[in-house]
Amino acid sequence: MRRNIPILALLLVLLGVALYQNYGKGLFPFFGGSQAKQAQTLTAALAEEAPKPGSLSPSFTLEGLDGTTYQVGGERNKPVLVNFWASWCDPCKEEAPDLVRFYEKYGDQLDIYGVNVTAYDTVEKAEGFVQEYGIEFPVLLDKKEEAYKKFNGMAFPTNVLIDKNGVIQDLIVGILPPKDLEAKIKKILKSS
């Protein structure tokens, strides 16, 4: 048995070298590839599955904190910004005041729906978040992550701008500077 140990060690080294050469740079950061590169590869793969700008928005219906049922998908009276968030998400906390301001400024021309992905949160924490930030636009509860999955959600916040015809105009993963998000809002309002 002792004679086989060097052979087994050599086989393991060869296997490690083969894995590194074939996969290490993007899939196995512990073999020398960077974790950032791995995250980019995974994000790109997931993003390829997500609905794209120019395609029809997936449809979903969710109940809001106010007890009203809201629907997204298909033709509407005005464009909609769908914001997927969670109460523990720091970028969501950073973005919330801007969304409140945009609703005050553009609410007559643009619906804003905050979709709390309650599968990763709680209703109580979502209600606390809404109170803390003074959110007046409808907040929907995605208790089973059904809506978030339809957009292949991968990060909070995720914002989707959908025009009056139900066509996705922009899908934003992560936070944008307020002026950039407002520019995208103005663009969808001009085209509507």
Score class of each variant (00 low, 15 high):
residue 81 L to A: 05
residue 154 M to I: 14
residue 82 V to C: 11
residue 68 T to P: 00
residue 131 Q to P: 00
residue 41 T to I: 15
residue 10 L to N: 06
residue 161 L to K: 08
residue 126 A to M: 10
residue 33 G to M: 02
residue 26 G to F: 13
residue 18 A to E: 07
residue 36 A to D: 13
residue 166 G to I: 06
residue 180 D to I: 05
residue 120 Y to P: 02
residue 141 L to M: 13
residue 187 K to T: 12
residue 92 C to R: 02
residue 170 D to Y: 00
residue 173 V to T: 13
residue 96 A to M: 09
residue 166 G to S: 11
residue 141 L to A: 06
residue 152 N to Q: 13
residue 99 L to F: 13
residue 83 N to R: 00
residue 80 V to I: 13
residue 116 N to E: 06
residue 126 A to H: 03
residue 72 V to S: 05
residue 149 K to S: 13
residue 191 S to L: 12
residue 190 K to T: 09
residue 2 R to A: 02
residue 29 P to Q: 00
residue 74 G to Q: 05
residue 53 P to C: 02
residue 141 L to Y: 03
residue 82 V to T: 09
residue 188 I to T: 10
residue 4 N to H: 10
residue 189 L to F: 08
residue 85 W to V: 01
residue 77 N to G: 14
residue 114 G to N: 11
residue 119 A to K: 15
residue 19 L to V: 07
residue 117 V to I: 15
residue 8 L to N: 03
residue 165 N to T: 15
residue 160 V to Y: 07
residue 48 E to T: 15
residue 53 P to D: 05
residue 94 E to C: 00
residue 36 A to M: 11
residue 139 V to W: 01
residue 56 L to F: 09
residue 128 G to V: 08
residue 82 V to W: 07
residue 50 A to T: 04
residue 109 Q to H: 11
residue 37 K to E: 09
residue 51 P to E: 09
residue 133 Y to P: 01
residue 5 I to E: 00
residue 91 P to L: 11
residue 35 Q to Y: 14
residue 53 P to F: 08
residue 26 G to V: 10
residue 167 V to W: 01
residue 39 A to Y: 12
residue 87 S to N: 02
residue 23 Y to L: 11
residue 88 W to S: 08
residue 81 L to Y: 06
residue 53 P to N: 14
residue 84 F to L: 08
residue 35 Q to F: 10
residue 76 R to N: 04
residue 92 C to M: 09
residue 36 A to G: 14
residue 75 E to S: 12
residue 17 V to P: 10
residue 165 N to L: 07
residue 126 A to Y: 04
residue 38 Q to R: 12
residue 92 C to Q: 01
residue 86 A to M: 05
residue 122 T to C: 07
residue 163 D to W: 05
residue 94 E to M: 14
residue 61 T to V: 09
residue 144 K to H: 10
residue 128 G to W: 06
residue 50 A to E: 08
residue 118 T to S: 10
residue 50 A to R: 14
residue 138 P to S: 04
residue 183 A to M: 08
residue 130 V to W: 07
residue 62 L to M: 07
residue 148 Y to L: 01
residue 52 K to W: 07
residue 74 G to V: 07
residue 141 L to S: 02
residue 105 K to L: 08
residue 140 L to H: 01
residue 75 E to K: 15
residue 169 Q to A: 04
residue 67 G to E: 03
residue 42 L to H: 12
residue 174 G to C: 13
residue 15 L to P: 06
residue 167 V to N: 02
residue 122 T to F: 04
residue 14 L to A: 15
residue 103 Y to H: 15
residue 111 D to Q: 12
residue 163 D to Q: 11
residue 121 D to T: 11
residue 89 C to Q: 08
